[in-house]
Each structure stands twice: as C-alpha cells, then as structure tokens.
C-alpha cells in the first residue's frame, strides 16, 4: 500500500534529462504547464503529446513506472472526464438522449481533452522534474531562481531549506510508518477490517509513535545543524555550484521556440476548423 507512493520520487539514472541543469528543468516545466493549457487544437495537442513521448523516451524511465505514478490522479481524471462528458452542451442534436442525460459530440471531445490534459500534465511534470531531479537539486535550483525576491524581504534561503528538509524526510516517514505498522501488526493490530471508526481508531498506535519520532528527529536535526554552525543563508557558499551549460541553454531555447510556434499556430489551425471550445 504505502510502497505505491511514487509521486514526487526520484529515480536515479544517467539520461540527458537527468543531467540537465535543474533550473532549466524548472523553467521548462513551467513552460510545459502553460503550453498544456494553451494547446487547444488537435495538431497542437498532437505536437505536445509527441514532445511528451520524446521526453519520456529520453528519460529512460520505464513506462510501467510512469503509469504507476498516475495511480493517485486516475480518480480525479476520470471524474473530470465524466463531468465534462455529461455537462457540456453542444449546438447540434445530442448523440444520446434518455431521462436527464444528453451527450453531445462536443461533450465527448472535451472529455477526451480533459483526460489528456490532466494525464499529460502529471506525466510531463513528473518525467521532466520529479522523476529525474533529486530533491536537493530541485530546491537548490528554486533558491537560485527565486533569489531576486530576497530584495523585497522574502527569506528565500529559509524557505528552500525548509523544503529541502521536508522533501528529504518524506521517504523516511513513509518507511517509518511502514515499520511501525508492521510492529503493531505483529502485536495483533488489525488495520484492514471493521467500520470506518474502528479503522481510524486502529491508526492511533501508529500515529503516536510516528509523531513522537518525528519530533525527536526534528530536534536531533536542529541540534546537529547548529553543531555544524548552521546559522541561516547569510554568507553561505555552496559545495556544488550550478552552471548552465550549452546543452541546458539549447534545451530551453528549443523548448521555448516550440512553445511560441504552438501558440501562434493556434489561430491558424482554428481558422481551419480544428479549434475546440
């Protein structure tokens, strides 16, 4: 059960996507998200999906893992698609009509598009960012990108450090939860049967030790950091400096060019009748 938490997890590898500068990946991801929302014609979508498939192939992450990462959003995606299917009113005659249900061709289109949009959003961001970038790189890059905000008094470094620590401890907490659950199961605890109230109650023996160990861990970490003279971001240098290389710039420019092309081609395709909504 808990082992299925792959969302937001890094998979080590040596692909070009893994080696890309994390800043380039963050900017690329933002661009990608914008594109997913701007793409409103069939050809634009086809191009976007093609780009996504290329990215997946380059990342070297197996299809199975990518699909597994979709598990948590399957419900939302299906729900959105169904809502769109039934609630989109079209101009022509409905395809199906009985009782209060009317399905129009437009409804089918928008359901498919919604589904594609959500799935490509999740796959794209995870392949481009979370699966191929270590959490450390990610926060480093965020800190660098948000640095300008320091001048208006935003504690960028502190936020980045908090995020690093939070991300760092997600797998640890998952593992710890599993361990405590196993220990209580070995003492006869039952997490699987009974009604909702009983099940929630059965989690108490897991949650209390989990909270206690989290607090202890936070304390230990704070002490350990202080012992190593951590005193916030001022005057701190880094061990690994990020350097933009030619490949990173090339990636960003080609991705941006692709986006611009996609954006300006939309009216053109629309005039040819490919537009949706």
């Amino acid at each position: 059960m808990l082992k299925d938490v792959t969302l937001g997890q890094y998979f080590p590898g040596q692909s070009p996507l893994h080696r890309l500068d994390p800043r380039a990946k963050i900017l690329g991801t933002i661009l990608y998200i914008v594109l997913v929302f701007f793409a409103r014609s069939f050809p634009a979508y086809a191009a976007l999906l093609a780009a996504l498939i290329v990215l997946c192939a380059v990342s070297g992450i197996s299809l199975k893992l990518i699909l597994k990462g979709l598990k948590p959003v399957v419900f939302i995606a299906a729900f959105t698609a169904i809502v769109n299917l039934f609630w989109t009113a079209g101009e022509g005659a409905p395809l199906v009509e009985f009782w209060i249900v009317r399905i129009y061709p437009e409804g089918i289109y928008s359901a498919i598009f919604m589904l594609l949009r959500i799935l490509s959003l999740v796959i794209g961001t995870s392949v481009l960012l979370t699966y191929t970038t270590t959490p450390m790189d990610l926060t480093d890059a965020l800190e660098r990108l948000l640095k300008p905000l320091k001048f208006i008094g935003v504690p960028v470094h502190e936020f980045a450090m908090m995020m690093t620590i939070a991300l760092r401890f997600v797998p640890t907490l998952v593992e710890e939860t599993q361990k405590i659950m196993n220990a209580q199961k070995a003492r006869g605890a039952d997490f699987e049967s009974g009604n909702l109230i009983r099940r929630v109650k059965s989690l108490i023996p897991v949650l209390i030790p989990l909270f206690i160990s989290s607090f202890r861990r936070a304390d230990d970490l704070a002490i350990a950091m202080e012992c190593r003279c951590y005193h916030g971001g001022k005057g701190r240098t880094r061990m690994k400096e990020l350097h933009l290389r030619f490949g990173d710039v090339l990636f960003l420019f080609s991705f941006a060019a692709f986006g611009v092309l996609l954006y300006f081609s939309t009216p053109f395709f629309a005039s040819m009748g490919f537009y949706i909504k």
């Binding site: 710890e176 361990k179 405590i180 196993n182 220990a183 209580q184 070995a186 003492r187 108490i204 023996p205 209390i208 030790p209 160990s213």
Partner: peptide, 9 residues
Amino acid sequence: FQYPEYQLF
C-alpha cells in the same frame, strides 16, 4: 523487532 522501542504508544 530490531529496536522495538518505537512501537510504544
């Protein structure tokens, strides 16, 4: 378990 202390609640 190894280090069973954490199971106390």
